[in-house]
Write a protein that binds this DNA or RNA. Structure first.
Lengths: 361, 361
DNA sequence: CACAAGATTTGGATCGATCAAATACCCCGA
DNA sequence: TCGGGGTATTTGATCGATCCAAATCTTGTG
């Protein structure tokens, strides 16, 4: 029935020129108040919305943010990224942007994908995930002056770009400190093999809490590939020790699950060993594992905020690359760590600032 | 340094008109072979790629497919949809399309989002997920003649649109049949409350296998809200029966986890009760639960295929709405169902056509 | 009352592609 | 030689917005 309204049709309706309508939307301060309200009314009545494609053609901006997806994301890490993606979609929507997906397996493929997509689309910016040592994407984007923000620190390189990340070390330090306060002394850490950035970071938090408390870490730190199998194998090794640990902090929920599972099958149920995971995945929820949750929607909105700083610099805001480091929060469940379960001494660990109970998010 | 090549610049380079270059890309059969190859060479040399925004402005097609995301997707169901999304992104990329995300909580919000996005973007089509009884989205889209495909059947309404779905009943029927062949007689089903389409479908498969085998289902069918807690409570109830079941089929991995967990804590480990979940989530993998996996990347490519039938109808293909129903496949793990674990009689259940071992996908 | 400075508004060109119609070219039969 | 019927290629208009420069209207001032 009714044709899509255009700038011209609205202009005719309001008895002004196209440019005036355009200004009503993009530079209202240029219009006389009376004209402005008349045009706004016309826009309202006709339900006019500018067509992105046309605007994009002229301005070479698209209000689109590109995000590369790993095609076969591994289950657990995939969970975190997918939740982040949901948050990002929402945050972008709030700012008038949309998320454009493309798939890319591995750095070089992702760079090819950037190249490909930039050749045909006017993407305004990119959001990177899963940064790692030797990441080539950031340099590539930076060289070309393309705006981007990464969810994940630039491990290794001191790249001067904006990023948002979650402070894994702070999380493990906090939970370890809680356990210490609850009387635990032999607290193990089951993490990934060295060199993974994220994993090293999470391990550091545990280590610093232990050494700060003047406790030894020798023999308490195990490294396994991610997965329940790794966790079980680590737990076996821990049990073989002369004095097994009384609590275990893990770099992931999968490891935590494995550790928990094996301990539970082996130990007498009388003296539960708190096991703490990371990422608060559905696995943790289902099994009632305590876990450190990343504030993913917050991370996503921070990413979007930093992007907007780059894309639409405000006069008062410095358009410098900025960094945001968010603290994870502890989700305490049945197999609790911290104030809930105590090994012997019921000294209540003082509640941490960012602690929630029950199902996260 | 170098400006982006345009149709005009390539045309100048190849000493032909713009239109000829355009034809080389969109209607090569119109060109003289010599001209064609000359133009193609020019395109190659200049790395020319047509700008989507410009093309879109003229043709009002964008090569974009819209997908609405539930902002706070619940963990497990979220897993399935996210994997589907990854697959869709990849499938779309293969066909020269991209996925555009927008967030929408609930049907009416999603419809608003359609309206909003269509007012400003030239989306070519939508892909819907999580269809359910009383879904208002399909009718809305159909009324407006917008091309779309849903991942999920139109429950309740016999809407004449294209869809792709996974045959849950076939999956539970198959696994139940396997268990029967392995000698089980009392096979329970733990599902969701009636009325959820997907859940009813999964239950039907179990039920039909049981009644086909002439076995009673009374007292063997339990309904619980999704989640491990529901599973545990169901398992408790099952154990209270005079003759507890020897195997349990569940509507989801969360339920299966709960059932498995409680059974394992309660029963003597000598006579394991096979527990089967659905969706093959990381939970199942981590715990070694047998589960029915949805072929999500296949579902995604089928969606894309149906979309392409709608968007770029081939002369030989009828552009009728089409339906695709894919069979899930059984991923057998330690707590196996079917041929692996037998209750007493080692009658080997004949291998199902679509059975894989170990970690899926 | 004329005139410059500033505030508003306008018309035309433009972004980069495709559409539609016009033109150039070619072979063949009347 | 002229015209018909293809085939091959080019020209000009157009999609719907913004950019730019110029036109018009206000207002204050000498």
């Amino acid at each position: 029935m009714s044709e899509r309204p255009t700038l011209a049709s609205v202009a005719a309706y309001a008895r002004v020129s196209r440019q005036t309508v355009s200004n009503a939307l993009n530079a209202p301060h240029l219009l006389h108040p009376d004209t402005l309200s008349r045009v706004q009314q016309a826009i309202e009545r006709t339900h006019y919305r500018p067509l992105r494609a046309a605007r994009s053609l002229r301005t070479s901006r698209s209000q689109l943010v590109g995000v590369g997806l790993q095609p076969a994301g591994d289950g657990v890490n995939g969970y975190v990224l997918d939740r982040f993606l949901h948050g990002l979609t929402e945050a972008a929507g709030g700012a008038g942007y949309h998320v454009l997906l493309f798939s890319a397996a591995g750095d070089s493929k992702e760079i090819e994908a950037y190249d490909d997509i930039l050749a045909t689309q006017n993407l305004d910016a990119f959001v990177l995930t899963s940064t790692h040592y030797g990441d080539r994407r950031t340099a590539w984007l930076a060289e070309r002056g393309l705006p981007f923000v990464s969810f994940g620190r630039p491990w290794g390189t001191a790249a001067p770009h904006s990023w948002v990340d979650v402070d894994g070390a702070a999380g493990t330090r906090e939970v370890t400190t809680n356990l210490l306060a609850a009387g635990h002394r032999r607290i193990a850490f089951v993490g990934w093999p060295d060199g993974s950035g994220v994993g090293d970071d999470r391990r550091d938090g545990w280590e610093s809490a232990m050494t700060t408390a003047g406790l030894p870490t020798a023999g308490l730190r195990l490294q396994r590939e991610d997965g329940a199998a790794g966790g079980r194998s680590a737990a076996e090794e821990l049990l073989r020790a002369a004095e097994p640990p009384t609590a275990v902090v893990c770099a992931s929920d999968s490891l935590a699950l494995g550790v928990f599972d094996l301990l539970e099958r082996t130990r007498r149920p009388a003296d539960p060993v708190p096991v703490v995971g990371f990422d608060d995945t559905p696995v943790a929820d289902a099994l009632g594992l305590t876990s450190l949750a990343q504030p993913l929607s917050e991370a996503a909105s921070e990413c979007m905020r930093l992007l907007l700083d780059l894309l639409e610099p405000q006069p008062d805001t410095a358009a410098q690359p900025a960094h945001v480091l968010l603290a994870p929060h502890l989700v305490v469940r049945a197999t609790g760590a911290g104030p809930v379960t105590t090994p012997a001494d019921p000294a209540t660990g003082k509640g941490s600032t960012s602690m929630t109970k029950g199902t996260a998010q």
